[in-house]
Nucleic acid binder design. Structure first.
Lengths: 356, 356
DNA sequence: TTGAAAGCGGTACCAT
DNA sequence: ATGGTACCGCTTTCAA
């Protein structure tokens, strides 16, 4: 094979590419040059054939020889080399922070991923726990993605956006409760969810409304807007609102239920259906009747809520389809000139069952 | 200065890489050559400084000038170019299939990701829904990851493993119910979970045991071993086992509960706690007493189970720590010579509460 | 202490 | 219809 004469030295640095001196599967990584040699053609021809380059006509026999050679060697093109040469990639990078966001979210996530792949993008999630905004943006920028789509609680700063754009990203899309400067912001107006719940409780006659706030870190981004929505609805009706921090455990829930009477609440919005289940059980164990003493409303309309007794009232959330967002990404990539816009993501409606 | 005569001195440099002729953020992507020019040094020096190359001593003033130039330009190294030159990357690719796997799994996932990043790997999840084994392996191989870690229900075939290794992957690790040839297999022996549940039910006197099998696609990998575990336990005691396909919806559960009497089951293992909740509600609505008529056992020991009445008996699962797996990956990468081993991932124990 | 230059694997001009 | 070849951005000898 007559590799370049550079190795031989005892340096601990990986000499050449085959570090242990023995390739695990026997052979070394085949390149397009290897394919060309085996097929008896040039690298250019290999490239033409394997990419079906339209601007150039290759005879059928040659095509076959190239394809067979590639097959035989198990040739796989080197994405890095390709995008280095091309000056851009088709990689869409999606940072993930992995706070426990519900099934609603992950369904959306999958749909988006699937749709982007259909549009011929390479979708890659980049775990970004414990990286602050700018450090994260730097790490992402190293991969030179054509677009960055940030869902949920990953911090994206304006300076990070700038960095990404300078690194060649044609579009930065954020999906969250608020706009981020310089990005295509898809806004989930979660205050809506709180408002729906609040208005419903007020209409049911509630005057003192508790709002469960998960203590799990990273969820503030979702919980605070919901609280504000409830506040807005309550303010209009002259009702009071009390935030209720709560960890997702049995004991804290029991403790909260224990001081329920002194809290004097006649209604509660429980963040989501899972917290609602936790709280409702604690309330019932403490002898508080639901909904007679206190009305309980959850959110997300999970199956779980329908299995509870009383059946859980909840706010149903319709998210934008993953396909729709994928198309937005595609458009943003193809026309980077268009000014970042603001899109609405969310629709919601109250589903009244038995707990309120 | 007067570098290679390829660019003009002060042109807006909209030629070449900038497809639309206008860079979104004003400037174009800075390279190490740009940094070198601004700092008045060579590209080599830039590389030395920015990578803190130990083998070479650069004067402090020069270092400062380079750093400042890099800062000013917002320079970010091009990962593809770097790994192309190096002949290898530090990318660990984790395929994701995104079937709804519980909170247990995703916690593990995060931990692993975090631990790998601490070991200086770049962790990247690659969404692989709807790709069959070999096509998926090809797609992954294009990125030339140093290791591939496949958790759960992503199909990894022996030929795919071979392809990946030929593409330079130093290690392929699978985490799942069974070994995969050629990989470091971390085996989750899920039959254990079924066996624990089965033995418990048999000890409680059950003679006819139902096993809920989720109809959601992609879960067979988890459900089948559990069923087999129950079968094994039942066989020893001469009890019978009946698989019960069930979709995660209210109506199918009600239908199943409707024909419960004719099924004649006195115990049921419900796949996990969520299915257990679904089934238990349906049974209670149909007038079947739990545990008196039928004992119910779930799995995963979610908080949910403790909130049900009767409290749900369940199989608690301890998974290997994410850190431990990260270290396994690291070892496998550094010593690709060592033969793939088989590791055990899982420990489990029965938690008896009120539903059985 | 620094610089010139040779590539890594592909792609796309320009000849032939 | 093909082949030769100059790049893409970065690292790393080897020379000065």
């Amino acid at each position: 094979m007559s590799q370049s004469p550079k190795q031989q030295s005892t340096g601990p640095s990986s000499a050449g590419r085959q570090p242990a001196g023995q390739s695990p599967a026997g052979r070394s990584v085949p390149t397009s040059a290897d394919v060309a040699r085996l097929a008896g053609v040039s690298r250019a021809t290999v490239s033409y054939v394997l990419n079906n380059t339209a601007a150039v006509r290759i005879s059928e026999p040659t095509r076959r020889r190239v394809r067979e050679a590639a097959e035989e060697l198990g040739y796989v093109p080197h994405a890095a080399a390709r995008s280095l040469r091309a000056g851009h990639s088709r990689m869409v990078l999606m940072p993930t922070a992995h706070v426990p966001i519900g099934p609603l979210y992950s369904r959306f996530f999958n749909e988006l991923q699937w749709a982007l792949r259909r549009l011929d993008y390479t979708v890659v999630q980049y775990g970004s726990v414990g990286l602050d905004g700018d450090a994260a943006a730097r790490a992402w920028a190293e991969l030179r993605p054509v677009a960055v789509v940030s869902l949920g609680p990953v911090e994206v700063t304006p300076s990070g956006v700038d960095l990404l754009k300078r690194a060649g990203a044609r579009a930065v899309i954020t999906v969250g409760p608020q706009r981020v400067e310089g990005t295509h912001s898809v806004v989930m107006d979660l205050t809506r969810v709180g408002r729906d719940a609040g208005e419903h409780l007020v209409a049911r006659g509630c005057r003192a409304i508790g709002v469960v706030m998960p203590e799990e870190p990273g969820l503030e981004m979702f919980s605070v807007p919901r609280l504000e929505g409830v506040r807005a609805a309550a303010a209009e009706a002259g009702a009071t609102v009390v935030p209720l921090p709560l960890a997702y455990e049995e004991e804290p829930a029991a403790a909260l239920a224990g001081r329920w009477r002194e809290l004097g609440l006649d209604g509660v919005f429980a963040y989501n259906d899972e917290y609602a289940m936790l709280l409702m059980r604690a309330l019932q164990d403490a002898g508080i009747a639901v909904p007679d003493d206190t009305a309980v409303v959850g959110s997300d309309d999970l199956l779980l809520g329908r299995l509870l007794r009383p059946r859980l009232s909840t706010v149903h959330i319709d998210m934008i389809g993953g396909r729709a967002l994928a198309e937005l990404v595609d458009r943003a990539v193809r026309e980077p000139g268009t000014r970042p816009e603001r899109h609405e993501l969310l629709d919601s409606r109250m589903v009244v069952r038995e707990s309120s």
